[in-house]
Amino acid sequence: MTAIPLKKDPYSIIITGVGGQGNVLASRLLGSMLADKGFYVTIGETFGASQRGGSVMSHLRVSKEGVASPQIPRGRADVIVSLEPVEAFRVLATYGNPDAVLLTNTHPIYPVGVIRGELSYPPLDELQDVISRLLPASYFIDATEQALLLGNAILANIVMLGALGRLNIVSFDRENFHAAIGRRVAADKVAVNLQAFDVGYGMVQV
C-alpha cells in the first residue's frame, strides 16, 4: 500500500484501556509499524500502576519532522482506540474534539465501585448514543468476544489493531503487522495474532 499522508503533523493517536488488557503491546506494535514506514514515532505511556485495575493510556505521535511531546495536548487527539468502552469516553472528554475518530471495544471491565455495587456502569446503548452524538466517526466492536473465540481475551488488543487497519486512516497493513508482531512475540504465537488481526479487520465497515 502507499503511505497515507498525515492529516496533521504530529498526528496524535491514543490507545487506552485498563491494566492487563495489553494496551502497552498494542501501542508498541502500532509504533513500530509506523516507524517501519519511515515516520518519527513518539510514544508516551503510563503503566506504573497499570496492573492494579487502573486506567492505562498510551499517546502515540506520528510525524515526518521529528520527536514530539510524549503527552498529547488536551483536545488534540486525532484517533482514539479504546480497549474498554468507559475508558473511551473518559479519554474523549479530555483529549477529544469533534473531528476525532474513535474505535472502541464494547466489552466492559467494571471499576471496583461497580463490582462493589456502589456505582453503576452506564448501559452500553446509552454510552454508544452519547459517543456517536459527540463524535460522528465512532466505531463499536466487541473485540473481546472475538478474542475469546480465538482462545484468549488478551487478543482483543490485536483485534482492535486489525479494525484500526481497516479504517485506513493510519499507514499500516497486514504485512506490516506481520513483521512487527514477529519481533515482539514468540514464533508459535504469530499465527494466532495474525488471525486476531484479520478478524478485527473484518469487523468494521467503512
Binding site: V18, G20, A49, Q51, R52, G53, G54, S55, G75, V86, E87, F89, R90, L92, A93, T94, G96, N97, P98, P111, V112, G113, V114, L119, S120, Y121, P122, E126, L127, V130, L134
Partner: peptide, 21 residues
C-alpha cells in the same frame, strides 16, 4: 464539545479506583 463531553463523562463514567489484581 469540551464542556458537554466533560459533563457527560462525570455523569456516565464511574471512576476507576486502584485495586489488587
Amino acid at each position: 464539545f469540551a464542556t458537554e463531553a466533560k459533563a457527560l463523562m462525570e455523569k456516565l463514567a464511574p471512576p476507576r479506583g486502584m485495586i489488587f489484581c
